[in-house]
Design a protein around this nucleic acid. Structure first.
Lengths: 188, 188
DNA sequence: TTTAGTTGAGCGAATACTCGCTCATTAATA
DNA sequence: TATTAATGAGCGAGTATTCGCTCAACTAAA
């Protein structure tokens, strides 16, 4: 090997922060380089385009998040405790790494265009949880995809509104209230 | 007047369609002009920039939607029937003018940056409905803003997933099921 | 004739990406 | 251990292109 890769992480952090603040198209490659204290060409050594960087930031972080979530879910045996684990995972992430969480939430409708068919999302996982809950007789008989949509929506709208300043509470205090509310929505 | 304004509506329709398909930054003024069968300069007679056009499309359509919604709400006297009216208004709009509805839903995180403080949104209205419902003793005692966030999230995630093809049902068939589910979430 | 909507070639600033080069780091050789 | 060769990360000035916007000419309604 020649030289260790030192700048990639700096580029990740700078790009994510800027993408959240100004949007992907609204951020220039020069700004990323400057913020990362790197040369402008360096990001192209690791990614073939700015879009490619944005996609990797989304994909890698979401994948890691989902993998960790599935570990947590494996420890739970009921639908309700699984949903609680999901809420907890989301809200703890939000308070722990707000930039990353904001990026995942806000870039949904832009980066998400590039998701291949069958790409795994929190929604995919939730459909599974709900169908298992229905098999156990704990969750009502409605279409699992509709339930999943409503539950995902209810859970994720809270951090979105916290980003916009409409909610101020520390989200970790809302894990149980939100879980309980959402559970009422789908319980038999 | 010397000449009637003929192209503005064509520009609205073409721009909104393209903005939904390719995003605002991803759409060029030339593409808008071509799709609208108008000259490129025409949109600048009516709007001072592409961003300005995008904002007006958002603002005017949302304002009209909210005004109509408030008319409907005035006819209802209980929190639950008001929420039903809101769901109905959203889902009927979706099936009636999908492009416009998609634009409002998907541009939230981009155009929404420009919303002035105190700008009225569906969320604002919902907070009012919920607080009144709480005063009537029909809705639980939790923070009204948190309730509103969860309800908005649950309601709007359904059309979002229909845009992404994860839900196929005609949303007008889901008005009552969604209303009932959402109501369970917040009822005392 | 006046007025105002429409047009599209042209402009210039912005910017994503390239490429030839540097040099820190490692591996091989003596 | 000292020396040399090889590697590829890092750099940033340069460039081809794109794209938002302007404006002078044109057209049609009043």
């Amino acid at each position: 090997m020649s030289r260790p890769i030192l700048k990639r992480k700096d580029i990740h952090e700078a790009a994510m922060k800027l993408f959240v603040e100004k949007g992907i198209e609204g951020t220039t490659t020069r700004e990323i380089a400057e913020a990362a204290k790197a040369g402008e060409g360096t990001m192209f050594r690791h990614y073939k385009s700015k879009e490619d960087l944005a996609w990797h930031l989304f994909d890698e972080n979401l994948s890691r998040f989902l993998a960790e979530l599935e570990e947590d879910l494996a420890k739970q045996s009921t639908a309700k405790t699984r949903i609680r684990a999901m809420v907890e995972k989301c809200y703890v992430l939000f308070e722990t790494d707000r930039t990353m969480c904001s990026y995942l939430l806000l870039s949904e409708h832009t980066v998400a265009r590039q998701m291949p068919n069958g790409y795994k999302t929190p929604n995919t996982i939730l459909v599974g949880i709900i169908e298992e809950g229905q098999a156990q007789g704990a969750i009502g008989p409605m279409d699992s995809k509709l339930y999943a949509a409503m539950v995902v929506g209810a859970i994720l709208r809270v951090p979105i509104y916290k980003i916009y300043g409409r909610i101020r509470e520390d989200l970790r205090n809302l894990i149980d209230p939100v879980t309980d509310s959402v559970w009422k929505m789908i319980a038999v």
